[in-house]
Simulated scan of single mutants.
Amino acid sequence: MSWGEVEATEPEFTRTVRERFGTFRHHVLATLRADGSPRVSGLEAEFRLGELWLGGMPGARKSDDLLRDQRFALHANPGPGTDMHGGDVRIAGRAEWVDDPDTRLRFVEEVDPPTPFDLFRVRITEIVRIWMDDQEMVIETWRPDGRGLRVLRRGNDTPVREQSGP
């Protein structure tokens, strides 16, 4: 599912996720190497034109990984200290290589990236946000399974409770 499609179904949740990613410029991307082992790389992610985009320099290992196996996980930069204002946010999915000249031109007009560049459009399979609400840990999970946003709450002295929506 595209970022815009998720935004349309969960506007408040995606606004929070997008703000969290917007707090810092650089984030952490996990891809799969040819032997199946994980690779972690720094990356800038862009929310533009109703999509989430991943980019990189041509020939970068992360690009090679994504061209071979589209699966990835993207973790928002937690920032300095330990408070992680806005929570711990992760997006997983598939990164589709973009070579369409018109799409690349619209992206360049919107973002003005250094050139040349590799460009991938994200298809989201999961978004997770974990944060603290008073003394409870709140785990928000969205997947494109039609169930919408799932929210689990867990306190030190209480069992896990699930609710629909925030």
Rank of each mutant, 00 (worst) to 15 (best):
P159F: 03
L54F: 09
R106F: 07
P114C: 05
L67M: 10
R71L: 04
D157R: 15
V108P: 07
V28G: 11
D69F: 00
T82K: 13
G86T: 01
P144D: 03
L119S: 02
E12Y: 02
R161A: 01
P113Y: 06
L66A: 09
E126G: 02
L149Y: 12
D102Y: 11
A92E: 15
V40F: 15
R25G: 03
E5M: 14
R106T: 03
A8S: 13
E5Q: 15
I124R: 09
N156T: 09
R143G: 04
V128S: 12
P38F: 08
D145H: 05
A8W: 03
R48S: 09
E5P: 02
E136A: 07
A95Q: 06
G4V: 04
L152M: 11
I127N: 01
V40I: 07
K62I: 01
F21T: 03
A76V: 08
P114R: 06
G36L: 10
T23H: 07
A8E: 01
D157H: 14
I139F: 10
P101Y: 06
R33N: 09
M132R: 10
S37P: 00
E51H: 11
P11A: 02
L66N: 07
E19L: 15
W142N: 02
D99L: 06
R68G: 12
G93V: 06
R68N: 09
G81W: 15
A60W: 00
P113S: 06
A34L: 11
D118Y: 07
V108E: 12
D118I: 01
R147Q: 06
D112V: 09
H75P: 00
E126F: 05
W97E: 13
G4I: 05
P159G: 00
P166N: 12
V98N: 02
H27I: 06
E140T: 05
V17M: 06
M1D: 05
L74E: 09
A95P: 12
P38C: 10
S41L: 03
P114Y: 05
L43A: 06
E10D: 01
R161N: 00
E126S: 10
L52W: 03
V40A: 14
L149I: 10
R106C: 05
G155A: 14
A73C: 13
D145S: 08
H85P: 02
G42W: 07
T14Q: 07
R90H: 00
G155S: 13
V98M: 10
E109G: 08
D133Y: 08
V111N: 11
R104H: 00
L74R: 00
M132S: 03
S164V: 10
T9P: 00
H27L: 10
R123G: 11
I91Q: 02
E162V: 12
G22R: 00
R154E: 10
D112L: 14
P78N: 14
R161H: 07
M132G: 05
D83S: 13
V111I: 13
R90V: 00
G81D: 10
M84D: 04
E10I: 03
P38R: 14
E5C: 08
P101E: 05
G59Y: 02
S63K: 02
L32Q: 15
R161L: 09
M132E: 07
R123E: 12
D145R: 11
L74T: 02
T158M: 09
F13D: 04
L52Q: 07
L105I: 08
V111D: 03
G155Y: 02
E109V: 03
D100I: 04
P101W: 03
F47Y: 09
